[in-house]
């Protein structure tokens, strides 16, 4: 298990390879469909959201307000990332992301952006909302809640030892592409 702490340096990202397991500590911002479309169309990040050398999490959490008024995250697994493929490369480039967490993998444009700008795609275990929520030590803030609704808002999480696997590295390798090709070749033997 490789420790990653935000903000992440380009060197730390370039050292990662497909198949590495990482544990992330620091700050994660969530952003999914509505946020990506908004940024793609030239929307500005709200004040307080800084993605430079940061990690963006494709996640629509379940967050409830405790009696003392604090937010409490009760479920926070990754959502399917491929929907952000039309936008992700631009967001990596424009905002200086070092990592994107999601599930299901991403395509060639994102892979190329990871190579060019020093970023990785980190695969969290889909559906593991409780294990991953347990890594969120604090909900620091929420942005654009009114505009996008709770699942689509930008949440700012403080995390400790958040587990993920590098499935697209900054050297042009994608586990998703490799498994797809291998499984297609294997299927051909069974038809």
């Amino acid at each position: 298990m490789i420790q990653l702490t935000t903000p992440v340096s380009e060197a730390a990202i370039r050292a990662l390879k497909v198949g590495d397991e990482v544990a992330i500590t620091g700050t994660l911002f969530t952003g999914r469909d509505a946020v990506h479309k908004y940024l793609h169309e030239g929307g500005k990040l709200p004040e307080g959201v800084n993605l430079k050398d940061g990690i963006l999490y494709h996640c629509g959490p379940v967050v409830v307000k405790a009696e003392n008024g604090d937010w409490k995250c009760v479920a926070a697994g990754p959502t399917t990332s491929i929907r952000e493929e039309p936008y992700q490369a631009q967001v990596i480039r424009d905002f200086g992301l070092r990592g994107v967490i999601g599930k299901g993998g991403m395509g060639d444009r994102t892979l190329k952006a990871c190579q060019e700008h020093g970023c990785v795609y980190l695969h969290a275990v889909g559906g593991a909302a409780q294990v991953l929520a347990a890594c969120i030590t604090r909900v620091r803030n929420v942005y654009m809640m009114e505009q996008f609704g709770a699942p689509e808002a930008i949440w700012e999480f403080e995390v400790k030892d958040f587990p993920a696997v590098v499935t697209i590295d900054s050297h042009g390798r994608s586990l998703h592409r490799e498994v797809l090709a291998a499984s297609q070749a294997e299927l051909a033997k069974h038809l």
Binding site: V62, G127, Q130
Partner: peptide, 27 residues
């Protein structure tokens, strides 16, 4: 990493039940 994923899944099932919280955030 496949075994790691299955272990996290197994932990998640136990945690959700004990906390009475959603197994997955996409309900």
């Amino acid at each position: 990493i496949a075994e790691s994923a299955m272990k996290i899944i197994d932990q998640n099932i136990a945690l959700a039940k004990n906390k009475s919280q959603p197994i997955c955030q996409d309900t």
